[in-house]
Design a protein around this nucleic acid. Structure first.
Length: 683
DNA sequence: CATTGTCGAAAA
DNA sequence: TTTTCGACA
């Protein structure tokens, strides 16, 4: 086990926010561009600058006005303002998109920020080495640089000099793979990125910054010393701030080369064990920190500053802004729950206030038991009031923040029930928590057919553009499928019309089921009138009866379909035509007789007017169709849950990896567990 | 008045 | 648990 065993990659999107804006408004491409938040004061604060603008001397930390001075033709795009504050949703969504592409190459991926991720591709490199025949050619690393060397020398030393270094060979294969990764990112998202390839995270990060944009850089171990000779210590991650500065000062070292000459003893004298060994190692290019598997953030927060005369002085202004923040965090937590099947158990309320001329900042934690905006807002205000209100009832708050953390995975509920009751399916790709045994237990309302590979929503070319190799062909699509699709369409139509949000139990997330049961109990019914359902004899509120009937309808469809599928499976290989009805469709009163057609009709043409980028499939969707489009993705997830497939929809590479690792994870009856197993750390 | 808004990690 | 630091758009 050596510190050079791993192949670690850092992928960093080029001026990410600018790219996001350019891709949303193609007329911006090629022009100098900066993204600013707010613009009332001196043209707003610049938070991203594209390379055309950098060439003209525009930098971050400038105000919009200064940028205009430097470069009059610069385009300044504003971060959207929602609820009175900058809203970064767009960029988070774009970041997710990228992360999902990266994840298709390895589950051993650690998202470091909205636009950066570390990948450990040691496994993939080993496989590529095994399967590759000849030598790596120059044209396989066209967009690659080698730090402190050249591609020619690098390959020459690998193959022609008799000096072939095992470690460098691994990095070379790493670079070949990263070329592919970056190409995939561009192909699937339209964004360019840069990358660093090295044996550890710190060096990968460093390497990445050496050649930008849209380039990648190998930093071999034997080029570290040369690179470090004149490298300011501040360039090393975690040494860019106060500590790095004090270190430079205290040890009298400006470069990493100088740091490497400081004795271990000297370091231990000045710093604690951990810090000393970190410094000693990194000065030699050694960093043992592993790449962790984390695709989703550990906390979700929002905040706003109120500088100078904007300070909040009254209870009214405080409650106003607390409300705005509570709304945002509630919305984001709810979305996160739907995507990741988890709920935060704690919020921390951060605030700073002016106390006799000085800004003092504090934070307090508070249990989080609901996504309800009012509840969050009231709790938060309570904390602020308690800590910030002066005797005369006034305030002087200059900063407010709410951050949710301590996420816990929610119990999984029966798939079809959860669809109708919660309307949510867990997105397993974003799971980070090891699945508990109970999570895999599905209530047996519907018998799940393990052999099911019928992906109703995944035809030969599904909306994601992925070939769904396991899907049955169109010929054997059943009428049932068509009915079901129509049903889903209708269901979502109804769902949108009846805006009434479903009640959910916050802790179990299966509320609907329980709340319906509760409402069915005599004496506990709400003020609303109820009717007895003919199918199940339960008492159902009138307003929910239509949905409830849909539930029974879908239940039947699913059962019938399950049976049909078995017939199909038994007969298709011999005679495709036997066993099921031809796919002749009756369109009767339904507006569209298949979801595919529906989507084609609605989304195939070029979009006009306002569009939104769908983070799931990276398509520009007309704004007014967006809700419907999201419903489609939800339906697909739900369908996949109801009809688990054996092969997970991820790259073959991962499937092979997983198979190689063997053992547990293969016994699951559903796709969920398999997917979870794929993305566990190698340990 | 003034970068701002988010994240993660670790010290205190 | 609270505060501080470092990072990045």
């Amino acid at each position: 086990m050596s510190h050079t065993d791993r192949v670690v990659v850092l992928v960093d999107m080029d001026c990410f926010y600018c790219q996001v804006e350019e891709n949303l408004n193609l007329s911006l491409k090629g022009k100098p561009l900066a993204v600013v938040q707010y613009n009332a004061w001196k043209g707003g604060g610049i938070i991203a600058v594209n390379y055309a603008a950098r060439d003209r001397g525009v930098t971050r930390h400038m105000r919009g006005d200064e940028a205009k001075q430097k470069c009059p033709e610069i385009e300044l795009v504003q971060v959207p303002n929602v609820r009175g504050k900058a809203d970064l949703t767009k960029y988070r969504e774009a970041g997710k998109l990228v992360a999902n592409v990266l994840q298709s190459f390895t589950g051993l991926l650690e998202r470091a920020s909205v636009d950066e991720a570390y990948l450990d591709i040691t496994e993939a490199v080993a496989q590529r080495r095994d399967s590759s025949k000849g030598e790596i050619q120059l044209n396989q690393i066209k967009n690659t640089h080698v730090a402190a060397s050249t591609n020619m020398d690098f390959l020459y030393n690998l193959y022609s000099s008799g000096l072939c270094d095992e470690n460098n060979l691994k990095l070379a294969y790493g670079a070949v793979i990263v070329e592919e990764i970056r190409a995939a990112v561009f192909e699937q998202t339209g964004y360019t990125c840069s990358a660093g390839i090295a044996h550890n995270k710190i060096l990968a990060k460093l390497a990445c910054g050496l050649n930008k944009p849209n380039k990648q850089t190998i930093l071999t171990n034997d080029n570290v010393q040369q690179l470090f000779e004149n490298l300011p210590v501040q360039k090393i991650r975690s040494l860019g701030g106060k500590f790095g500065a004090s270190l430079s000062e205290d040890l009298g070292v400006a470069t990493m080369g100088e740091l490497s000459k400081v004795s271990e003893k000297e370091l231990r004298k000045r710093y604690d064990e951990k810090t000393a060994s970190f410094l000693f190692n990194i000065a030699r290019g050694i960093d043992l920190e592993p790449v962790k598997t984390r695709l989703v953030s550990k906390s979700i927060g929002c905040c706003k500053t109120f500088p100078g005369k904007n300070a909040l002085l009254t209870a009214e202004s405080i409650t106003h802004w607390v409300h705005e923040l509570a709304e945002e965090i509630s919305e984001r937590l709810q979305k996160d729950f739907e995507e990741n099947n988890r709920k935060a158990k704690q919020i921390s309320i951060v605030f700073s206030q002016e106390v006799n001329g000085k800004d003092v900042s504090n934070s307090r934690v508070h249990p989080l038991t609901s996504h309800d905006v009012e509840k969050i807002a009231q709790d938060t205000f309570g904390v602020i009031k308690k800590n910030c209100m002066k005797p005369n009832g006034s305030f002087c708050v200059k900063y407010l923040g709410i951050h949710a953390s301590k996420f816990e995975e929610c119990r999984k509920v029966n798939a079809i029930t959860s669809f109708f009751k919660v309307g949510v399916a867990k997105n397993e790709r974003n799971s980070v928590v090891e699945t508990k045994p109970e999570d895999n237990v599905l209530d047996s309302t519907v018998e799940l057919d393990e052999n099911s590979s019928d992906l109703i929503f995944l035809n030969e070319k599904d909306v994601d553009g992925n070939a769904s190799k396991d899907s049955i062909s169109n010929e054997i699509r059943t009428e049932q499928s068509d009915k079901k699709e129509s049903f889903f369409l209708q269901y979502f139509e109804n769902l949108r019309k009846s805006k009434s949000p479903v009640k959910r139990d916050f802790n179990t997330s299966r509320i609907l089921e329980e709340s319906v049961e509760e409402e069915a109990m005599p004496g506990t019914s709400t003020t609303e009138d109820a009717e007895v359902c003919e199918e199940c004899s339960e008492s159902i509120p009138v307003s929910e009866m239509a949905t409830h009937k849909d539930f029974h309808f879908a239940l039947k469809l699913n059962q019938e379909e399950s049976l049909n599928r078995k017939t199909v499976a038994a007969t298709t290989t011999k005679n495709k035509d036997s066993g099921i009805k031809p796919k002749k469709r009756k369109s009767h009163d339904m507006p569209h007789n298949s979801l595919t057609k529906f989507l084609k009709n609605n989304y195939a043409d070029e979009s006009i007017g306002n569009v939104r980028l769908c983070s799931e499939c990276n398509r520009n969707i007309p704004e007014n169709e967006f809700a419907s489009h999201l419903d489609y993705h939800m339906a697909k997830r739900i369908h996949l849950e109801m009809n688990p497939v054996k092969s997970a929809p991820i790259s073959e590479k991962n499937a092979i990896n997983s198979a190689k690792k063997g053992k547990k994870g293969k016994t699951s009856s559903g796709s969920s567990k398999n997917l979870t197993a794929f993305f566990k750390p190698v340990s």
